[in-house]
Design a protein around this nucleic acid. Structure first.
Lengths: 191, 191
DNA sequence: TACGCGATGACAGTCACTGACATGACGTGT
DNA sequence: ACACGTCATGTCAGTGACTGTCATCGCGTA
């Protein structure tokens, strides 16, 4: 019952997500309790756990990257190879972040510095791989090829993401999609 | 006198690890408390947390895969390409498991079925990537190439591991190292 | 106005983990 | 043999992450 805070201010979920990112960036993940986040958002701790299954998920809920990739793979041209189709899925996922580089970069810094959050991010990456794999299978790609293509495409996505948000790349900034294409070309040359 | 010998019953650490795998396989991770594991191992809960930083780590402590990979990369022939050197590191890591396929397969099943354990395993994979990257850098490989080579090599390792422990492959069983080599060749053909 | 629905608050409880202190076994020196 | 130091362990209290349960509040609707 905080003063000036009505019981049902709109967008409680968004307020909690913003409060969490702020607090994690200010004093760190370990030094921030779920109650702290809830308090800054003007709700109770119980409400926090009604919106998010656990403390980590507050930074990840709301951007269904895996679905975007799944659909992106299916939307690739008929004649595309499995690898090309998978990369098209990665670009579809990249499109979800393309307009929010600053936010993505701040969030990435916080996640990078916090092992529990890194774990959760890696699990999300695994979900992307699974979604890409399923979409490739739907396109008729064989199990082993879909498996490898999905894994390597998500690898390219993750490496590309780190390059995209890298603070040193501020001068000549490419789009996330372009970086993914360039990273994939590098990988091809490597082998 | 023997090094590392326990003062009470010997090998408390190993007993706890075996008890944990048994209990997780029997009734599941969530239905097993740290106290349950400790009890079966004949120690107290407090002792469990003296040996393992958290409940998940009990299934992962004791096999320094990342170090093996690091050393394996450095041991690769001078003339090896970055990609070849990275794969040599993967084979060095694979050697740590080669003699324990049944144990590795059971553990993999438990981990696969338990999101919190999957998260931890993915973090271990990230540590392998980091160790491989560092070793490649020591060999004089450039940052972007080492980055991609390490990521794709660990991807090959993980895909190869799943194939190695796949129950359907019981008949004509190849070695883990051979599967890694074959998987790498498949990936090359894919691109 | 009465009613139902959905989101929230309040409260108690379990479990993962941690710090502080006591105790038991073992090795060593005398 | 005996005292002492050391180290793994036992004991206990405490915090924080989460969950179940029930009461409450705001709003739409008959």
């Amino acid at each position: 019952m905080l003063i000036g805070m009505g019981r049902w201010e709109p967008d409680a979920r968004g307020r909690m997500q913003r409060a969490a990112l702020e607090l994690f960036a200010e004093r760190g993940y370990e030094q921030t309790s779920a109650g702290d986040i809830a308090e800054r958002a003007g709700v109770t701790e119980r409400t926090f756990f009604r919106h998010f299954p656990d403390k980590r998920e507050v930074l990840f809920a709301g951007t269904p990257m895996d679905e975007a990739m799944h659909d992106g793979v299916l939307a690739a041209p008929e004649h595309a190879t499995p690898h090309e189709a998978a990369l098209a899925g990665m670009c579809a996922g990249a499109a979800l972040l393309e307009e929010r580089r600053d936010y993505a970069a701040l969030r990435a810094r916080v996640v990078e510095a916090t092992p529990p959050l890194r774990e959760r991010e890696l699990l999300k990456s695994a979900a992307m791989t699974a979604a890409t794999y399923r979409a490739l299978r739907t396109r008729g790609v064989s199990e082993p090829v879909a498996d490898l293509a999905a894994h390597s495409a998500v690898t390219v996505f993750r490496v590309g993401f780190l390059r995209w948000v890298d603070a040193r790349n501020d001068a000549a900034q490419q789009s996330f999609a372009d970086i993914i294409t360039a990273t994939a070309a590098e990988l091809r040359a490597l082998m």
